[in-house]
Design a protein around this nucleic acid. Structure first.
Length: 131
DNA sequence: ATTCTCACA
DNA sequence: TGTGAGCA
């Protein structure tokens, strides 16, 4: 299929689809016309790319992880590509640091919000997660 | 009608 | 990452 179809089927813009190719996340073949030709597998592949991107992984890391993803989607990845486990652990650590930073920022805001004398503002509702 | 590459108010 | 240009 060509880029227009893939874009519609994945909800990803043609612009991004071409960008993913630049990052070696997709490697469509070229028709004699010069048009990119994608396979059915690319539809699922794009879904994987979206998920990995949402997880905050760099396109470089995704390029390494992608070939390890079968139709299953996630669990098998570790067994097929053991070498990637530590790389993924690094990513996980990075996410933990981000969470810590956000929690700190949240506390900073809470301090400012609660520093105000008295009034009726819905500024600090029940903390999500810990009830 | 579609896609391609390149460039940027 | 969107948008428009000028082609094929």
């Amino acid at each position: 299929m060509r880029i227009g179809d893939l874009a519609r089927r994945t909800g990803v813009s043609q612009r991004l689809l071409r960008y993913y190719e630049e990052q070696d996340l997709l490697t469509p073949t070229r028709l004699p016309s010069g048009y990119r030709e994608y396979t059915e597998d690319d539809v699922l592949r794009v879904a994987h790319i979206r998920n990995l991107l949402a997880a905050g992984l760099s396109t470089a890391t995704i390029a390494d992880v992608l070939p390890c993803m079968g139709v299953d989607g996630e669990r098998l990845i570790a067994s097929i590509c053991p070498e990637l486990v530590d790389e993924l652990l690094v990513e996980r650590a990075r996410i933990s640091e981000s969470i810590a930073a956000l929690v700190a920022a949240q506390s900073a805001l809470d301090t400012i919000i609660n520093a105000r004398p008295a009034a009726s503002s819905p500024a600090e509702p029940a903390a999500a997660g810990s009830s």
